[in-house]
Write a protein that binds this DNA or RNA. Structure first.
Length: 562
RNA sequence: GCGCUUGUAGCUCAGCUGGAUAGAGCAACGGACUACGAAUCCGUAGGUCGGGAGUUCGAAUCUCUCCAAGCGCGCCA
């Protein structure tokens, strides 16, 4: 509906230009807003105020010209008005709103989807946890935001590739291997032979036991058999990585999060991509040697200091394979790439982008894009639960899902914008009460389904493609408000995708559920008036469908009973 | 010290690329079920949008500055 209003204004502007009532050569973008106050109509437009200066006319005068050219928009509008300093307010005809229900019906499960993205390729990298331990709550937030973002982008018409990057080649992996080896040899963390900064979690003991037992591990795209020899560090390393990848895969599966592509850092070395990056950067003259190390002049690209690429010991720092990885992404044809990460990795952004710029292969400055989420604190019984991986005190994603359920966990992780810190109150998430927004929304869906059962018992059918005569029964303020909200789902999804802010969808759902509950409490659905009953059943069918479609984009179920 | 993020009602948070009288949930108070699910609804009360300055027709939103919190600032990832 918003788009239809926008194109009405655009053609009106064109007509006014042709008639030489307006003279500007550069038209501003037409922005259609929704007034906070319903007395100001269904939609509003501020373009007259924006154009006033260029036209050397009063805003209201410009608005008058636009409105005159607009007419009633082929019957879409009952009224337009000029208000305040120069707003144009649009009042959409009830018949147009009622008819929008038919579109929702015909689109079915795909209602909410649009072709805004034009089928263009976008790659979203998220989670990308090191395979050195199980996924914790912070990864959970990243998984929920990243996965929902993918679903939202997909619904907005993008061709989405979901990707997980494994840092399986650095110092932390060596550390992991040494920790497992120590456990294999029966060395305890308080033993002087225990590796410095070794991983102390209980799961390390499990990996060691499994390795010594010669077990086989199936991870997403490889299977690894334990060698069983505690002296074979290489074998331990690859086994431990495979073992933890399998754990992470299971955690993600329990969360209903899936990936299309897994990229391993080690592969970038074996394919020679890392060396190639170093050669290219050196050939481009952006590097220098100092203190036995090779540096990249990232300060030429906005960094606050230069960064080491090759350490004095000959190894590369992590950001070199990162640059190689992103070069590969670029070469795979992703004009857009989005990285969802914890904000604690913020400093890598400038570095990676600088490295990509220094390659001089035509990558835009702002590529890739980033979504950073802030920290999560976990509350239980009014107390903060501390997370420490090395000490092994730990709230894993798996524990959380097992305890509060997948639906509530996903909802809680995405109901705040990524920029804001999140307090995850386990007690609240577990509560099946009105304080819990997940149940509020799901209850609306279940309640509607219950009405349908009741209607069926009384012999009422939900009509398909009802006549305008039937739809014309839907005239109360609550009914029209509900219809308007239903029609807003596609716009909401487009906005979520444009701003990388899936939390907007949770607010939309809460508002939609609230609107339904208000309607329900004021109006009887099943009544003596058969035509009205049919119309209202039809409205609720579209409401249930919209709730379900939106919930499904969040990866949350729409139960028929609860 | 520098960088990024955040600061809105007692609490937790929205506020749609600058728009009209700043919203919701919880908590508080008062109401609504012998008819479709009360896990619901209706009403009341509650705010110097962290402080200050600036930009313009118009600022919670943009700029600057100060204050406070979180996270970074490694030849770790």
């Amino acid at each position: 509906m918003r788009n239809r209003i926008a194109s009405l204004v655009e053609s009106s502007l064109q007509a006014a230009l042709t008639a030489q009532e307006l003279t500007t050569s550069t038209l501003p973008d037409v922005i259609i807003g929704t007034p906070a106050n319903s007395e100001h109509g269904d939609f509003s437009c501020n373009i007259a105020m924006q154009m006033a200066k260029g036209e050397r006319k009063a805003p209201r005068q410009v608005a008058e010209i636009i409105i005159r050219q607009l007419g009633d928009g082929q019957g879409l509008l009952t009224r337009t008005e000029i208000a305040g300093p120069g707003f144009i307010n649009f009042f959409v005809a009830p018949t147009a709103w009622q008819a929008s229900l038919l579109e929702i019906e015909s689109q079915g499960d795909s209602f909410g989807r649009t072709t805004t993205g034009g089928g263009k390729k976008v790659q979203v990298e998220f989670v990308s946890a090191n395979p050195t331990g199980p996924l914790h709550i912070g990864h959970g937030r990243g998984a929920a935001i990243g996965d929902t973002l993918c679903r939202v982008l997909d619904a907005a018409g993008w061709d989405v590739t979901r990707e997980f990057y494994y840092n399986d080649a650095g110092a932390q992996i060596s550390n992991l291997a040494l920790s497992v080896q120590s456990r294999c040899l029966g060395i305890e963390p308080d033993d002087p032979r225990w590796p410095a900064d070794g991983y102390q979690g209980d799961y390390i003991r499990e990996v060691a036991r499994s390795y010594l037992a010669g077990e086989t591990v199936e991870a997403s795209d490889q299977h690894t058999v334990a060698d069983g020899d505690p002296q074979n560090l290489d074998a331990i390393r690859s086994f431990a990585v495979a073992w933890l990848r399998r754990e992470q895969d299971l955690d993600l599966a329990a969360f209903d999060v899936r990936f299309d592509v897994y990229t391993l850092e080690s592969g970038l070395y074996t394919e020679g991509r890392v060396d190639a990056v170093v050669r290219q950067l050196t050939a481009n003259g952006h590097t220098y040697e100092q203190d036995g190390a090779l540096w990249l002049r990232t300060t030429d690209f906005g960094d606050d200091k230069d960064r080491v690429m090759r350490k004095a010991d000959g190894g590369y720092t992590y950001f070199v394979p990162d640059v190689a990885y992103h070069q590969a992404k670029w070469e795979r044809g992703f004009i857009r790439a989005i990285n969802e990460q914890g904000a604690d990795h913020h400093s890598t952004i400038t570095r990676v982008r600088a490295g990509l710029q220094a390659l001089q292969i035509g990558i835009p400055q702002g590529w890739p894009e980033y979504v950073l989420h802030q920290m999560v604190t976990v509350m239980r019984g009014g107390q903060e639960v501390k997370i420490s991986k090395r000490a092994g005190s730990y709230v894993t994603l798996r524990d959380l899902i097992d305890e509060v359920g997948r639906d509530a966990t996903r909802f809680f992780f995405i109901m705040r914008k990524p920029d804001a810190q999140l307090v995850f109150d386990i007690d609240l998430a577990k509560q099946q009460t009105n304080e819990n927004p997940v149940y509020y929304v799901q209850y609306a869906h279940a309640r509607i389904c219950s009405i349908f059962e009741n209607a069926a018992e009384k012999g009422f059918l939900i009509p398909a493609g009802p006549t305008p005569d039937t739809l014309a029964c839907l005239t109360t303020a609550e009914e029209l408000q509900l219809i308007k909200l239903l029609a807003a789902l596609p716009d909401t999804i487009v906005d979520c995708a444009a701003h990388f802010e899936p939390h907007r969808l949770t607010y939309y759902l809460t508002e939609l559920a609230s609107c339904f509950h208000s309607f329900y409490n004021k109006n009887r659905v099943i009544s003596e008036d058969h035509n009205l009953t049919a119309a209202r059943l039809y409205l609720l069918k579209r409401t249930a469908q919209t709730l379900k479609n939106a919930l499904s984009i969040l990866g949350i179920s729409a139960p028929e009973r609860m």
